[in-house]
Design a protein around this nucleic acid. Structure first.
Length: 423
RNA sequence: GGUGAGGUGCCUGAGUGGCCGAAAGGACCGGUUUGCUAAACCGGCGUACGGGUCAAACUGUACCGAGGGUUCGAAUCCCUCCCUCACCGCCA
């Protein structure tokens, strides 16, 4: 969430940036400031009164030990009066703080200066393309036909066991998943990311920390009995590792990577966009997360983009990198680059990675800080990116490398998969 | 799931109603000193939200798992919840 202090000092900028993100309820900004004023005033009042209660209480103790019962009783009566005043102040203060929090979390992060204006994906700016556009042979088909033909994925079986969007990977399809996992993780750890295997269910605090709560409950599966959320991405448990911590400045940057299944309800999605592997309720992803010094986050964002680009390129896929416009960015992000790979058989671009700088938006929620040279506590910046999400990568690998004789795997996967061709 | 014990600062650990934001030791930071890959000594060393200040200094309040209660006063007493550990049960 945004910092009140920052909003107070940069109100005009905040309003302008929020508008770029197509955030309409600009009145929320004033609400936040009013509530914060009120909070301060009540805090002052409460603290002053409480200070008097405390000093009187000490006095009472002294009087009693001196045997001055009468004096003590008089003071007790005074304290009782003060405490009567204290209760309603405290109640109002708590209510105000709660409302302030509920209000300020409605504000999305401010888009960075270089974020393009716009409302829809059409307004995203293409930064660059890479890889060769695949030429398919005449008999080429989409991946949902290929996986059937070669027995790689059974969607119907997933329907039977669970429901739609929960595919069963079989034979070389399953093995390929395992290959992707190992390849991606090795690629990330080679770049200094520390591998983690986090829980797949998280508590409410964690879901709040990365910005899934409030408001996005509907996107997550929820285990009601224990009040745990199934993670929509490993970003959630990975970033929350450092929740409420003050890390050493010298420990930055902290680089994490992890493989997990991801669970998304994706309520309301339908049609050709969700065909085959294009959109699933359960899918696999390797994530990279960094916690960094605030002065470095944009530099590191570029590094992370370059890192993911190398990975995508190594798979021989035709890709493009988009800088998302204000309207298409996530709620918590200050700037996001999307990676899309080209599916020749579907003749469309498929998003496979999203790399974002959240600046202090998440860390302010999670209270992830470091001490600067002056001993002052500062928020670190958080970033993350997919490196990579499996299903669409898999779809493109299958589709783009199909021949009349079978599917040729990208060379980097040969040793991981244990085979180089699906036939 | 059952029974028992317990949750105190970065760590260990003392503290059963006022003198406790909290002993002591360790770690860490700064300094002094000793001619040796280190020791000794001195000092510092929580967080949050206010006030104050150019910034500090300084200062108020809260926090000893969380929330509530008793009391003039709570780390200390009571209640609820959460968590940890041990043993038993069950089990990958």
């Amino acid at each position: 969430m945004l910092q009140v202090q920052f909003i107070r000092q940069n109100k005009a900028l905040v309003l302008e940036r929020l508008a770029l993100k197509n955030f309409r309820e600009l009145g929320v900004v004033d609400e936040v400031l009013d509530l914060d004023d009120r909070r301060k005033k009540l805090t002052q009042e409460y603290d002053d009164t409480q200070a008097r209660v405390k000093s009187s209480s000490k006095e009472i103790g002294k009087l009693m030990s001196q045997g001055s019962q009468e004096e003590a009783e008089k003071l007790k009566a005074e304290v009782a009066t003060l405490k009567e005043r204290l209760a309603p102040i405290n109640e109002e203060l708590n209510a105000t703080e709660k409302l302030l929090l509920e209000t300020i979390v409605k504000l999305p992060n401010l888009p960075a200066a270089i974020v393009p204006a716009g409302k829809t994906p059409e307004d995203n700016v293409e930064v660059r393309q890479g890889g060769a556009k695949p030429e398919l042979y005449a008999g080429a088909v989409p991946h949902w036909d290929l996986v059937k033909k070669y027995n790689l994925i059974d969607f119907e079986l997933g329907n039977k066991i669970t429901g739609s969007g929960f595919p069963v990977y079989t034979n070389k399809g399953a093995r390929l998943q395992r290959a992707l996992q190992n390849y991606f993780l090795d690629f990330n750890t080679a770049a200094g990311y520390i591998e983690h295997q986090p829980p797949l269910l998280v508590n409410e605090d964690s879901a709040f920390g990365t910005g899934q709560l409030p408001d996005k409950e509907g996107q997550m599966y929820f285990a009601t009995e224990d009040k745990y959320y199934l993670i929509p991405t490993s970003e959630v448990p990975l970033t929350n590792i450092y929740r409420d911590d003050i890390v050493k400045e010298s420990d930055l940057p902290i680089k994490l990577t992890g493989y997990t299944p991801c669970f998304r309800r994706e309520a309301g999605s339908y049609g050709k966009d969700v065909r085959g592997l294009n959109r699933l309720h359960q899918f696999d992803k390797v994530e990279i997360v960094q916690l960094v010094h605030p002065d470095k986050s944009f530099e590191i964002l570029d590094e992370m983009v370059a890192h993911v680009e190398k990975l995508v390129a190594s798979l021989g896929l035709h890709y493009r990198i988009l800088r998302l416009c204000g309207g298409d960015m996530g709620f918590a992000s200050a700037i996001t680059y999307d990676f899309e790979v080209y599916s020749a058989a579907q003749q469309k671009w498929l998003e496979v990675s999203s790399v974002s700088n959240f600046e202090s938006y998440q860390t302010n929620r999670m209270k992830i800080r470091y001490k600067d040279g002056n001993g002052k506590t500062q928020l670190v910046h958080s970033l993350n990116g997919s490196s990579l999400a499996f299903p669409r990568i898999l779809a493109c690998i299958l589709e783009n490398n199909q021949t009349a004789e079978g599917i040729n795997l990208p060379e980097v996967l040969h040793s991981y998969a244990g085979f180089d061709k699906i036939a």
